[in-house]
Each structure stands twice: as structure tokens, then as C-alpha cells.
Design a binder for these strands. Structure first.
Length: 331
DNA sequence: AATTCGGGGGA
DNA sequence: TCCCCAGAATT
């Protein structure tokens, strides 16, 4: 047992690392595939490991190399992303893959990676450290929470973020920065959890200021949450010969570029009359109740007839998948 | 500095 | 129900 908490953390990581498909074993001589590291990091932005794991496998099976992803069509890529949310990630993923191919490979330093679409401060540092063994400091919410607790930095992260980041950069080791990052993230995900930390299993609790207070879960302070507005809208269900009329949403904004059912705008007001059928879907910053209105004739504009028995191939985001679910349960 | 972007796992 | 997740881009 090492006296230094950073070494104890790395030893704990060596013995208890989560076995994730985009990883190599800690201490391995091999480096992970930069394509795998990049794809997993983008998928994991605001998305849990449990959700990402099966979707990552499907992407790699479908597009084994970054060049395969670059040459895929935008529509097919978005359809494969359907249900994962934050669809700007999928649009940027496509552009990023094409730039990487044009560059002849991934940039190996943080600054080069940061230039690519969909790669921000965290992801650039993570790829540089994990794939290329750079001494960068990837700070995600796990790292923020673990550092805030070890250092005893109280208050909501919105107020303490710069202090926490300074502390993280100060304590981060120059060697094995990628292993240290993954060790910190595993600790945050499995032991140093937001609500009920398992300090009894933690290899560094003896060096943790939050543990010493007796209420480690109180750091960081919970964020103040805004109320979620209610919105309403209508989706048109236009069915003919076993097919339904779909449209593609505008490239930017909510569900940008995704396949969708046609319909009205979403507004704060009520409907003229209460709908017979509706689905409810909760987004991060508003909740939507979407009335389903059967129609006979497609609206003006682009669209296509999608066979309902092959609706999966359209790649509908979850909101519209719920509508399809509701309409096909009836018949 | 605030807001906009999805969705689901797990308590 | 509610919280939170390997954040980025835009305003």
C-alpha cells in the first residue's frame, strides 16, 4: 500500500478498472485506438456508460474505421444515432470524421484536437491523455466532484468551478495522465458517487477532506434547478398502404436534421380542443405534450413514405418513436 | 455568464 | 418522481 494517495488511486484502478470496450487494460503497453477513444468520448458527453456501451458496439461494427464513418451518408449516421440525444453531436461527429480523414489521422495534441467540431476542452484533453499519453488534464463532472471532495471545496460547482479546476491542474500527475484520468472517473462513477458515496471502499478516503467532515455527499452543494415549462404541439399521422409520411427537420435547433413526423410548431398555449390521443415527452429544459392528429393528405414540402414495418430504419428520435408506438399499438 | 441542446438509468 | 450523466456550441 502506497503512502501517496495518487499512487493508491492508480493501484486501485489497476485492480478494479471497469472493463469497457473502448479501453485497454490499465498498465498495458498498447495504446487504445484513437478512433475508439474519440467515438466513446463524444457518445459519453452527458450520457451514461450503460446507455453508450451497446450503441458504441453497433457503431464500431457498422463503421470499423474512422474513414468508414466519414464516408457514410449524413442521414444514415443520424439514424444510427437516433435515441442517443443531443443530435449536434452526431452532426459534428460526421464533420469531425471527414476532417480527420483529410488530415491523415487524429491530431495527437490537445490544441489540434480542440480545433475539430464537437471536441471541446474536456474531450480534447481526454483524447490527448488517453490515446496519446499527453500530460493534459481532462476535467469532467466526475473529476470535479472527486477533486472538490478531496480538497474540501464547498459550495455549488457553478460558483467553485474555477477553483476546482485550478486544484485539479495542481494535483494532476505529469506521468500516466490518461490512466489517472480514467482512475478518477471510475472512482467518481462507482465509489465517489453524487448521492451515496461508498467511502468504505474508497482507497483515498484517508486523504479526503469531505470524508473528514462526516458528510461527504454535501460536497459539492446541489445545483439550483429551474422550473421546466410545459409546451404543446401536434403531430400529423398520415398513413397510406402501410406507410407513414415522414419529413426531415431543419438542420439546426431541436432534433436538428432528424427524421420526424410533420406537425405544428410547439408553443406554450393550449390546443383549441383537447386531443383524443397524445404522447408526453420530457426534454431537459421543457416538457412537451404532443397531440396526434390523423390526416389523409401529406402537407406541402419534402417528405417520404416510410413503410411502417421498416420504421426503425428511419431513425426517429424518441419523441416520434413514442408516437409510432402509440399508433401501432392500436391496430 | 447563461442558455440551448435528449434521453435514459437508477435510486 | 427526481437527479444526473467522461459537455459543446451559441448567445
Amino acid at each position: 500500500m502506497s503512502a501517496n494517495w495518487k499512487n493508491r488511486l492508480l493501484e486501485h484502478y489497476r485492480d478494479h478498472a471497469r472493463d469497457l470496450p473502448w479501453r485497454v487494460r490499465p498498465g498495458s503497453n498498447r495504446r487504445p485506438d484513437p478512433y475508439h477513444v474519440w467515438l466513446s468520448e463524444v457518445m459519453l458527453q452527458q450520457t451514461t456508460v450503460a446507455t453508450v456501451t451497446p450503441r458504441f458496439a453497433r457503431f464500431i461494427e457498422k463503421w470499423p474505421e474512422v474513414s468508414d464513418l466519414a464516408s457514410a451518408s449524413r442521414e444514415v449516421l443520424l439514424a444510427e444515432w437516433a435515441g442517443l440525444g443531443y443530435y449536434a453531436r452526431a452532426r459534428n461527429l460526421h464533420g469531425c470524421a471527414q476532417q480527420v480523414v483529410a488530415l491523415g489521422g487524429f491530431p495527437e495534441d490537445e490544441a489540434g484536437l480542440r480545433e475539430l467540431p464537437g471536441i471541446g476542452a474536456y474531450t480534447a484533453a481526454a483524447i490527448a491523455a488517453i490515446a496519446f499519453d499527453a500530460d493534459s488534464v481532462p476535467i469532467d463532472t466526475n473529476v470535479e466532484r472527486v477533486v472538490a471532495r478531496i480538497e474540501g471545496i464547498e459550495g455549488p460547482l457553478a460558483e467553485t468551478r474555477s477553483e476546482v479546476h485550478d486544484a485539479a491542474r495542481a494535483l494532476w500527475p505529469k506521468e500516466r495522465a490518461g490512466d489517472f484520468a480514467q482512475a478518477m472517473m471510475d472512482l467518481g462513477a462507482t465509489i465517489c458517487r453524487p448521492k451515496t458515496p461508498r467511502c468504505g471502499e474508497c482507497p483515498v478516503s484517508g486523504d479526503c477532506a469531505a470524508f473528514a467532515t462526516g458528510a461527504p455527499e454535501a460536497i459539492p452543494a446541489p445545483k439550483v434547478r429551474k422550473a421546466r415549462p410545459e409546451r404543446r404541439g401536434t403531430a400529423w399521422w398520415i398513413e397510406r398502404d402501410g406507410a407513414v409520411w415522414l419529413v426531415r427537420r431543419p438542420a439546426k435547433g431541436m432534433l436538428g436534421g432528424m427524421a420526424a413526423l410533420p406537425g405544428s410548431e410547439w408553443t406554450d398555449g393550449a390546443w383549441p380542443e383537447e386531443p383524443e390521443q397524445a404522447v408526453r415527452h420530457v426534454f431537459t429544459h421543457f416538457a412537451l405534450t404532443l397531440a396526434i392528429e390523423p390526416r389523409d393528405v401529406p402537407p406541402e414540402g419534402e417528405g417520404w413514405w416510410q413503410p411502417i414495418d421498416r420504421i426503425d430504419e428511419a431513425g426517429l428520435p424518441t419523441l416520434y418513436a413514442k408516437v409510432v408506438e402509440a399508433m401501432t399499438l392500436v391496430s
